[in-house]
């Protein structure tokens, strides 16, 4: 599936909740719980993205010309957000990842998690995903 298609799918999924933020967050928490954990060997200091409060671990590899991301976070809401990012960007070509706008986060009403005042490391995570993608284009 293309990035835009996955984003559209997520958008539809969240539209179902309307203005019910509690249901939206419960869904986000469920997503966090269902994220396949990163393999223990990749939960290293190198792979850690330091937010001020919650931490994110991200591992990436190139497989058949596509980026594969696995990740984890110690906060469940952050992990839910991480799960969404992975769903959109993992399995995509590096050049598509670099160009991804990621504005679906705003559209589903979770923009607050990407504001720089949020101490959760998500913005740094997206930057890291794009950086890894750039490195793999150059290869």
């Amino acid at each position: 599936m293309k990035i835009e298609d996955v984003e559209k799918e997520i958008l539809e999924e969240f539209e179902f909740f309307g203005d019910d933020w509690e249901a939206k967050y419960e869904h986000l928490i469920d997503l966090g719980k269902s994220l396949p954990l990163i393999e223990a060997q990749f939960k290293t200091e190198e792979n850690i993205i330091q937010g001020c409060q919650s931490r994110v671990w991200l591992n990436s590899e190139l497989k058949d010309g596509k980026m594969i991301f696995t990740a984890d976070s110690d906060a469940i809401i952050t992990k839910g957000m991480v799960a969404l990012m992975i769903r959109v960007l993992s399995g995509q070509k590096p050049e598509d990842i670099v160009n991804a706008k990621m504005d679906f986060v705003d559209k589903i009403g979770l923009k607050e998690h990407l504001s720089p005042t949020r101490a959760n490391g998500l913005v740094s995570m997206i930057n890291r995903m794009k950086k890894e993608a750039i490195l793999n284009i150059e290869k």
């Binding site: 967050y25 409060q53 101490a119 959760n120």
Partner: peptide, 11 residues
């Protein structure tokens, strides 16, 4: 995680 508790209370 305290971050999760604080985020939801803020809502």
């Amino acid at each position: 995680h305290p971050f999760d508790v604080g985020t939801l209370l803020d809502k």
